[in-house]
């Protein structure tokens, strides 16, 4: 069956970026306000799901050539590394470090190792969600 999905395809191309950047925003906002890796990851994967809906899995895979299971692995390793790093310094597992830095353009910013952990969570959530969507969506 051939359906005319011109409008959704056109919209999806734009809306994808809006959702994706909003996901990044939510992810970074999690530093002090509601948000964080989990919600950000869900939003980011919803952006990809929108593309999958508008086009199909094969097209999306050529556009975003990411192996999502690898993404899970990388995310979990990143989270584990952040948590385990203090062990080498002699601090308890999961100790976080933070400080204020003056960065070019942004100015005074607080950087926190929890951010790295959250990046791991972000990747895991995107990986898991997309793996599930692909598993269900793959066989027609």
């Amino acid at each position: 069956m051939k359906t005319n999905d011109m409008i959704i395809q056109f919209t999806a191309k734009i809306v994808f970026f809006i959702i994706f950047f909003f996901a990044i925003h939510i992810f970074l906002a999690g530093h002090y306000t509601p948000g964080g890796g989990f919600v950000g990851g869900l939003l980011a994967s919803s952006a990809i799901v929108l593309l999958v809906l508008a086009f199909d899995i094969k097209t999306v895979r050529t556009v975003i050539p990411v192996n999502y299971t690898t993404l899970i692995g990388i995310g979990l390793l990143l989270a584990l590394a952040t948590a385990a790093f203090p062990m080498f310094k002699g601090d308890p597992f999961f100790t976080h470090y933070f400080d204020y830095f003056t960065l070019p353009l942004i100015g005074k910013t607080s950087l926190h190792t929890a951010m790295l952990f959250d990046t791991g969570v972000f990747l895991v959530v995107v990986g898991v969600t997309m793996t599930i969507i692909q598993t269900i969506g793959e066989d027609e």
């Binding site: 299971t69 690898t70 899970i72 692995g73 390793l77 584990l80 385990a84 062990m87 597992f93």
Partner: peptide
């Protein structure tokens, strides 16, 4: 005491690849 928990986890992640 965390090592018997972390090491299998670490290897589990490595083996995902």
């Amino acid at each position: 005491l965390l090592l018997p928990i972390i090491i299998p986890f670490f290897f589990g992640m490595i083996l995902l690849f």
